[in-house]
């Protein structure tokens, strides 16, 4: 049994169900990508897995317990999420922002401890943002800024980390850099990582497992080589294409026909 799993999960906004009756197991210690066309419910699923949306039906289980029965701060010690567009206060410095990731580990009267200090330092080092520690966030480039946000999520020190479209506003170089970073984090510390991604080629290249969604349902799931086929891309994205092998890694590449 995996640590994070959803059973019969139905999620939605207002009176519209976006995800309905979905079962999913998030593989422990792997990097998983959730892919699909716009508005297929992939971000909704991620938000549901991170208890940001209350299930209409079904449940999300964390370590065998329904999340709705756990205190939110206990969930936050195990499961982190970087949302699509986090907000930073005006002029906040990198060190200050990353430190705020320690929130779930602090109590009403518990002061900042050596453990907090080390977690923040580890997060800065892992993301290569230690040199930026005293700089204001708004002065950084998009790529640097995204790495700082990842550092904030890392400072939370969770075994599972979910990211909602972490590469969307980055150029190709920074996209690759960020995905490499996620994979390194996974390989070195065994963290389970789930990211909503748009680029199928990059998802295939850097992730162990792909979940393809359409209309709020999971259409296919498995290793990139098994999942990314011309048939699936046609079905999920409505795009006619040819799949070729990545000359470097041998993973599938989608070429529009």
């Amino acid at each position: 049994m995996t640590r994070l799993r959803a059973e019969g999960l139905t999620l939605g906004y207002d009176d519209r169900a976006v995800v309905s009756g979905l079962d999913v197991d998030i593989l422990d210690g792997k990097v998983t990508a959730i892919v699909g066309a716009n508005a297929c419910g992939k971000s909704t699923l991620l938000r549901g897995l991170a208890r940001l949306l209350k299930p209409r039906a079904g449940a999300v289980h964390l370590d065998g317990t329904p999340m709705s029965a756990m205190s939110t701060v206990d969930v936050a010690k195990v499961l982190g999420l970087l949302p699509q567009s986090p907000v930073a206060p005006d002029g906040v410095t990198v060190a200050d922002l990353v430190s705020r990731g320690r929130y779930p580990h602090q109590g009403w009267f518990r002061r900042w401890t050596g453990e907090d200090h080390e977690a923040v330092a580890r997060a800065l080092d892992a993301t290569g943002t230690a040199d930026l520690a005293s700089r204001p966030l708004h002065q950084l480039s998009g790529g640097q800024r995204q790495r700082v946000w990842v550092a904030m999520a890392l400072a939370q020190d969770t075994d599972l980390l979910l990211l909602d479209e972490p590469t969307t506003f980055l150029d190709i170089n920074h996209q690759v850099e960020l995905l490499r970073l996620l994979r390194t984090l996974n390989r070195e510390s065994g963290r389970t990582i789930v990211a909503v991604l748009h680029d199928l080629n990059l998802a295939s290249r850097f992730c162990d497992h792909i979940i393809a969604m359409a209309d709020g349902r999971i259409v296919a799931e498995g290793a990139p080589g098994e999942v990314i086929t011309a048939e699936l891309v046609g079905k999920v994205f409505g795009l006619a294409c040819v799949i070729v092998d990545d000359p470097v890694a041998g993973t599938p590449i989608v070429v529009p026909a």
Binding site: P83, P86, P89
Partner: peptide
């Protein structure tokens, strides 16, 4: 002053604050 800790999480947007374990 005691509630300031929560304010610092809420400042990051509702999604981030919730992910950090804020009610």
């Amino acid at each position: 002053v005691l509630l300031q800790r929560h304010l610092r999480a809420l400042e990051l947007g509702d999604d981030t604050a919730r992910a950090l374990g804020t009610r």
